[in-house]
Design a protein around this nucleic acid. Sequence first.
DNA 1: AATGAATGAGTTTTCATTCAT
DNA 2: TATGAATGAAAACTCATTCAT
Lengths: 216, 216, 216, 216
Amino acid sequence: MDGSQVRHNGPGRTRASILGAARTVFAEKGYSGANVNEIVTLARTTKPMIYYHFGSKELLFAAVLEDVYAGMREYEQSLEVAGTPAADAMRRLVEVTFDYHAAHPDWIRLISIANIHRAKHIDGSPTLASRNAAVLEIVQRLLLRGAAEGVFRDGIDPLHLHLLIASFCFYRVSNRHTWKIIFKRDLADAADAIRQRDMAVDAVLRYLRPDNPPAN
Amino acid sequence: MDGSQVRHNGPGRTRASILGAARTVFAEKGYSGANVNEIVTLARTTKPMIYYHFGSKELLFAAVLEDVYAGMREYEQSLEVAGTPAADAMRRLVEVTFDYHAAHPDWIRLISIANIHRAKHIDGSPTLASRNAAVLEIVQRLLLRGAAEGVFRDGIDPLHLHLLIASFCFYRVSNRHTWKIIFKRDLADAADAIRQRDMAVDAVLRYLRPDNPPAN
Amino acid sequence: MDGSQVRHNGPGRTRASILGAARTVFAEKGYSGANVNEIVTLARTTKPMIYYHFGSKELLFAAVLEDVYAGMREYEQSLEVAGTPAADAMRRLVEVTFDYHAAHPDWIRLISIANIHRAKHIDGSPTLASRNAAVLEIVQRLLLRGAAEGVFRDGIDPLHLHLLIASFCFYRVSNRHTWKIIFKRDLADAADAIRQRDMAVDAVLRYLRPDNPPAN
Amino acid sequence: MDGSQVRHNGPGRTRASILGAARTVFAEKGYSGANVNEIVTLARTTKPMIYYHFGSKELLFAAVLEDVYAGMREYEQSLEVAGTPAADAMRRLVEVTFDYHAAHPDWIRLISIANIHRAKHIDGSPTLASRNAAVLEIVQRLLLRGAAEGVFRDGIDPLHLHLLIASFCFYRVSNRHTWKIIFKRDLADAADAIRQRDMAVDAVLRYLRPDNPPAN
DNA sequence: AATGAATGAGTTTTCATTCAT
DNA sequence: TATGAATGAAAACTCATTCAT
């Protein structure tokens, strides 16, 4: 009757829109709190499509998490800072990490939710298992470079350094709601956030600084 | 009128057992994932008792969270270390914080869950509102003492320092499941945990150390 | 507001009415074809009551089947025919079996349905496992008595004799619909049924008759 | 217009494979329990093919039943035993019937399922309506021949005799699952089956034997 | 303070069927 | 003929909450 047919989106279109909607809703409500109906409404499709494309609510959540971790690649690529002194590169790495977390609260919420469920939804994922966590190698190379330059101490475990950085950047976002109530200060406040960012850089660089720095 | 008397537990006994069971179940499954039936089964009582004592599932969860934060008092009291050099006291504070978090994963899970729900269940709680976060004062006093002793730098925001410490101690527990899958290392591994603990102390003390330490 | 309260039937009332409704609906539609909604409507209650009282649709069906087999007791009790010549007693046994099957088509349908599902719903039932099939003993005693009287042959397996009797009585009911279409005769036709009944008795007695009957 | 041609199976190939898969699945799960998806997966085709070739799930089931009854022809043809004494021929007829049922449990399950649904899926089928049930004529001729030979009684209704034979052969297969649980004996046990077969023959021949057999 | 049973609304999931290509 | 994707209706099941006692 009319040429403007709405049915049948392009291939993969429905799947993608479900994934996006699911990401939003899961991040907002948690796994159990999220509601399949709300997801399909937001995705402008129907419930069976979830089961057709993903198999179950659980597998849909797993797909969302894979998607979230795919985003980690993007973050990791932005970490590579070539050709600068190690200390500057490290400063940059902390700042980028800080900013990425600050800019992606959904990412953080979804990872928190995954942990509440003991990461069972990504356990056994071939995609994630085959991943080699690029951050660690970047950090590792940077540590070696800094040590060679004489600006970082030796023997730092890159995983532990990453833990120091990531925990700070993640927690200030993930736990800001309880902090606001308990400590009456909003960690997301812009002015304060800048000082937290400086602090993170400072803490990392001081931690790495050799006890007898080169006298140059 | 008839011999079949209903057994009463001691006063508050039912309430307490519901609270304990709820804590376990909410920590395990999250707010929405937790199920009122499971709670009463674990508490060896019946559903109406929840409504009698707490009013609703939401209010029960709020009560659990208050209970969790009451545990914070216990932690804070163990922080007070009198009569020692500031640096030693600070080392102690970090260690106690680290150990407390490591020993109370449920506490951490519940706080994560509260944050997923944007802390709405504790928002407006008179108990929590009236709380003056003792940690901050302890940290504050310690910072001043250390500055006076000349072993800490000036101008450190106690909230930020607490953030540095707490984020590390919290995150390594809260996010250990996803870390295990992504980085193939278990942050809870005993030997590694010791090194993380040393690192936390080290990072904090190096962060506080004055640039020109007193020549003593 | 009004004294005629309908809610809350007597204890066990809801359970019993669900069981009765389920029996009707399962017999009518088969296990998968039966619909939980229809059952609760017929039982004048609500869906959760099925899950509260029985646990699942499958367990409800299992309960129906147990109920069906409980009916077998009633049938078995009516088999005991004391103090008559063995041949007369056997005639009576066949007739009672015939009549019982003819009078309980639902019983037959439910057992057919159970067999379609390979009896998995009653497999492992403690009630049914502990049952000692009284028919077999009755038949056994009757065979011995007849042999002693010299009117039955020796060495008949009571289970096989019961198979001969039951198969005829069951099948003519269970398969009458396909027979009607294939052979254009209705096995349930009253006049014909009488002849079938006579035939069943006749076939059994002739089968049991000794080759050299006592010359009395 | 483009190289990506859809693979066509041979003519009727898809139809036949759907029919075969449907037979398997319906026999296994019953009409309602069977699932169109499972059928097409087993048939290695897609759902619309069912609707293209058969019109609906119900019509597909009807087609399966027609197919099942077509198998009856094969059975009936194997019944014709020429040129032997009537008693031997009858023995053979019972044995063939017994063996055919024993060898085709799916056939039996499908007929049971059809009866659960009151044979509505084959009601009105022109194919089946036009069928003249060959068994009955074979049995009829055999009875006449036996009577002429003086080895069978007169006046036996061939339909009733067929009922006696078929019920035994069908029921021992159709109801073996519940029998196994109730009577703790497996009617399909090979050694026992032989005795059941002998019994069937014996029961039929004794039923037919004249009261005053010819003294030959 | 306690219980067994009930309720209504909602949850995830399934299914036969059909559309566009 | 054949396919991948979509649909609408309904299926089984769950849940927080409340009633009558």
